[in-house]
C-alpha cells in the first residue's frame, strides 16, 4: 500500500537534516564520513540523566526519532498512536564488543549484564519506545542492506491492517573500529578475487534516517508507492518509470545503470553504511521538498546477497 511521509530526519557525519545530506552528496565530501555523528542535540529533548544508560546506537536512534517526529509536527515525547519499525544492517555492535571486553577482562563471573542487555537487537527500538512513551507494536529487522526495504514492507503491512495510525520507521547503523577493520579486510579479499569496487570499498560509516509514515494524506512530503524485495533478476529493469526517475543505489551503482538519465551516488556523503537506502530515501524526500526537483519519482534500489530491494518514492506536491 502507499505510505505518506509526514516527517523525516537524517543524521551522519554529514550533519543533521536533509539539506546537509543533499549538500554533502552534491559536494562529494569524501573525507568526512568516518567522523562520528554529533548527537549533542539530544539535550534539546531529554535531560542527560534520562539517557545515562543509552549506548551510542540507541542515542542515534532516539535523536533520529525525535527529529522526525518534530519535523512531522508531532510531540517527540508523545507522538500518539504510533508503532516503531527499526531497520539495521548489523544491530548495535558496541555493546556486544563491550560485553566481550568485560568477559575477556574480568571473566564469566563478572561479565557486564548491562552491556549484554544493550546488545540484544531489539533493545534500541525498545529504548526509543520507552523514551518517547510509545506503546504500539515495535519490531526490529536485521538483514544487512535489505533491512530498509524489509522494514518499510513491515510498516506498510501494519498501516494496511490498521494496527496503528502512524509508524515511526528508522534505520540505524553505527561505526566501530572492529567492524571497520573487518569490512576493509573483506573488501581487500574480494578485490583480490576480482569483485567490482563500490561504496563497499569505503570505510565503514554510521548514521540514521527516520520517517513518520501514515496511510495516504494530502500533506505528504512524498508517497512511498512501492516497496519490494525479491531475488535479484538476471536483467534488472530500469524503464518502468519512463525516464522520469532518479535512481539511488545505496552508493553502489551497477555498471549497467551508468547510462541512465538520473543516477545519484550518495556514498561520498554517508560512506559505507548498510542502511544506505534509508539515507538515499531521506535525500530523495529532501530534494522533492526543496523546489525544482526535476523528477517525479525516486527509486532507492540495491543488490545484496542475491536480493534486489527497491523503494519507490513519488512526488505529491506539485
Amino acid at each position: 500500500m502507499t505510505m505518506s511521509i509526514e516527517g523525516f530526519s537524517c543524521l551522519g557525519a554529514f550533519g543533521s537534516g536533509g539539506d546537509c545530506l543533499t549538500e554533502a552528496i552534491r559536494a562529494r565530501h569524501t573525507d568526512r564520513f568516518t567522523e562520528r555523528t554529533d548527537t549533542s542535540a539530544l539535550a534539546n529533548f531529554f535531560p542527560p540523566r534520562a539517557l545515562r544508560q543509552c549506548d551510542r546506537f540507541s542515542r542515534l536512534a532516539i535523536l533520529g526519532a525525535c527529529l522526525a517526529a518534530q519535523n512531522a509536527g508531532l510531540n517527540p515525547t508523545e507522538p500518539g498512536n504510533c508503532g516503531i519499525v527499526l531497520a539495521t544492517g548489523y544491530g548495535s555492535a558496541t555493546p556486544t564488543f563491550d560485553f566481550l571486553d568485560s568477559l575477556l577482562d574480568h571473566g564469566e563471573q563478572m561479565a557486564s549484564p548491562l552491556a549484554f542487555s544493550l546488545s540484544v537487537h531489539n533493545i534500541p527500538a525498545a529504548i526509543v519506545a520507552k523514551t518517547m512513551q510509545i506503546q504500539g507494536p515495535c519490531a526490529t529487522v536485521c538483514q544487512y542492506e535489505s533491512s530498509v526495504a524489509s522494514g518499510l514492507l513491515l510498516a506498510s503491512q501494519w498501516l494496511a491492517d490498521k494496527r496503528i495510525d502512524r509508524v515511526l520507521f528508522g534505520a540505524v547503523d553505527e561505526y566501530t573500529d572492529l567492524l571497520n577493520a573487518v569490512t576493509l579486510r573483506v573488501v581487500k579479499e574480494r578485490e583480490i578475487q576480482g569483485a567490482r569496487k563500490s561504496r563497499r570499498a569505503l570505510s565503514l560509516a554510521e548514521g540514521a534516517a527516520f520517517f513518520i509514515l501514515s496511510r495516504p494524506k494530502d500533506s505528504s512530503l512524498g508517497d512511498i508507492t512501492s516497496v519490494s524485495l525479491d531475488k535479484s533478476p538476471d536483467h534488472p529493469d530500469y524503464n518502468a518509470l519512463a525516464g522520469d526517475c532518479l535512481y539511488f543505489f545505496s552508493g553502489a551503482v551497477p555498471p549497467e545503470a551508468h547510462g541512465l538519465p538520473g543516477v545519484l551516488d550518495g556514498s561520498p556523503a554517508y560512506g559505507n553504511i548498510p542502511v544506505a537506502a534509508a539515507l538515499d530515501l531521506a535525500a530523495a524526500v529532501s530534494m522533492l521538498n526543496t523546489g525544482g526537483a526535476p523528477f517525479s519519482h525516486y527509486c532507492c534500489r540495491n543488490y545484496t546477497a542475491g536480493v534486489q530491494s527497491e523503494i519507490i518514492l513519488k512526488r505529491v506536491k506539485p
Binding site: 540484544v120 537487537h121 531489539n122 519490531a139 526490529t140 538483514q143 524489509s150 514492507l153 524485495l229 531475488k231
Partner: peptide
C-alpha cells in the same frame, strides 16, 4: 531459490 518478500525479524 524463492522469489518473494524476505524478512529477518529480531524481536528477541
Amino acid at each position: 531459490g524463492t522469489r518473494g518478500p524476505i524478512q529477518t525479524v529480531t524481536n528477541a
